[in-house]
Amino acid sequence: MPRRKDASAVELESLDLGYLALFVGQRVNERVLEDIHAAGFTGLRHAHGYVFQHLLSGPRSISELATLLEVTQQAASKTVAELEGLGYVEKTESEDARVRRVALSARGRAAVEKVRAVREALQKRFERQHGARAVEEARRLLADVLTSLDGAEAVRTRKVRAPR
């Protein structure tokens, strides 16, 4: 008996570029998390990446992180405490004892390197499956669209905000 087509099913080709890019990005991020968790970097969530992006250049105070993340100091402190408990972030020296500064720990930097390696492997997989030229054209198109929407500078300066 033929399989009945679900009337609520979405045809991928009917989606606009924004949704397709969003769904691809979400699925890639899920795969990255699955792979890094399997490699022993447990407890990390997608939202932690927004903290990591601001610690890549060096230590920050909780106040600086809160401002950069556009959250309260309490929210930033809670996330940092979570990452400290998991071993990805550590306290650092501060000239002012009242100011709590944090940085990526060795484990945090290793997690960043693992994420980069997983993303590079996925990129190579896409190139094998779809052709390097097609992947490069898709990347160029998405970069151009991002630029046309005034979103490129936030990416370039590592100031991408968490979704609201």
Rank of each mutant, 00 (worst) to 15 (best):
K5S: 08
D6M: 09
A7V: 11
A7Q: 09
S8V: 12
S8W: 02
E11N: 12
E11D: 13
E11I: 12
L12F: 11
L12M: 14
S14K: 15
D16S: 14
L22C: 11
V24F: 14
V24K: 14
G25L: 09
Q26I: 15
R27I: 06
V32W: 01
L33I: 04
L33F: 03
A39D: 10
G40Y: 04
G43F: 08
L44P: 03
A47M: 05
H48P: 01
V51H: 02
F52D: 04
S61K: 07
L65E: 05
T67R: 10
L68G: 06
Q73W: 01
A75V: 13
A76G: 00
A76D: 01
V80P: 02
G85A: 08
L86T: 01
Y88K: 08
S94I: 09
A97S: 12
A97C: 04
V99I: 14
V102M: 05
A103D: 11
S105R: 06
R107Y: 00
R109L: 09
A110K: 12
A111I: 04
V112M: 08
A117R: 12
R119Y: 04
L122P: 06
Q123P: 00
F126V: 12
E127K: 08
G131P: 12
G131T: 10
A132I: 00
R133M: 01
A134D: 05
V135A: 13
V135N: 05
R139V: 15
R140S: 14
D144I: 00
V145A: 10
L146P: 00
T147S: 13
A152R: 11
V155E: 07
V155I: 08
R158V: 04
R158Y: 07
